[in-house]
Design a protein around this nucleic acid. Structure first.
Lengths: 155, 155
DNA sequence: TTCCTTGCAAACGATTTGCATTGGA
DNA sequence: TCCAATGCAAATCGTTTGCAAGGAA
């Protein structure tokens, strides 16, 4: 993972990024970032509320998530269940992709070796250009069945 | 696109697939398939209702979409806006990927040349296996700004 | 006749918003 | 002091479901 290091550093970067926009980095917001940076993949609002110490009222939680989204601190995804999942933006974690379990919906981060990453980048650039798009990024999702579901026989 | 051909053939395949499960291919359902197969990418329920001739009540529309999903006739996606979008499954349209406009949310299909597709397949297989997943498929999304938004200056 | 399908209206659940209150710089 | 942040409750909105009526085999 090519991202920045330990927790403290992330809080510092987030603090600075918010400060640039005149937004305070409060205890509630810090709790959200802590919860999200401990996760190994995108997490739902409910999961974050659960993981955070002390309880975050839903309204505040969603407001924090919205602000983090607008300031480019985190990225929002939607699994096939339609529930939003959030994770730190790539300038904080490094570029990576996801494996998705089609049985239970779990999503986890995966790192991609440089050679493969270069190949992906080239493919995406060429395809996007062909469609008349100015390409900014690419997302690869590997779909499969996770170890747990394989054992349980869910599919 | 490696999929099957004209409209009539698709209706026929859908009809057969439903019949296997003892499900009728009614006029309403046929209208949904017609609307969805005229689209050039995944479409929302609202867009489909709009595109279909005559109006489809929401409940029936969603029930049709659910049935098509369960029978593997169409695939459901969620954009970053959290609204579900539907498209015909790949055994009906051929394997393909998507370009997504980060400004307006539009999603369009793109074909991928064989060489690139093989590369993607290999990368996905290796990454998934490494994460302990039984890999079933892969999804590549090219993110960028579409021609329309580029002109409008939306981003 | 027997099920499947339809359509209306009500229910759901994730997310958002109004508004009065609290708190930090 | 002043404006951003908070938290409760109410509102939204895409989607689902209960139920009675309609239709095909």
């Amino acid at each position: 993972m090519a991202g920045v290091g330990p927790t403290a550093e992330i809080h510092d970067l987030v603090h600075r990024r918010l400060h640039e926009s005149g937004i305070r980095y409060t205890g509630g917001r810090r709790a959200v970032v802590t919860a999200i940076q401990m996760a190994t993949g995108p997490r739902t609002a409910a999961e974050l509320a659960n993981a955070a110490t002390g309880d975050l009222p839903v309204s505040s939680l969603y407001r924090s998530l919205a602000i983090f989204g607008e300031t480019g601190i985190l990225k929002k995804h939607h699994g096939s269940d339609g529930i939003a999942r959030y994770e730190l933006a790539e300038w904080l974690t490094g570029h990576h992709h996801h494996v998705v379990c089609v049985a239970c919906g779990a999503i986890e981060d995966i790192d991609v070796p440089d050679a493969a990453e270069r190949a992906l980048h080239d493919i995406a650039s060429s395809l996007g250009a062909q469609a008349g798009f100015r390409v900014l990024d690419h997302v690869l999702e590997v779909e499969g069945v996770c170890l747990g579901c394989e054992v349980t026989g869910d599919r």
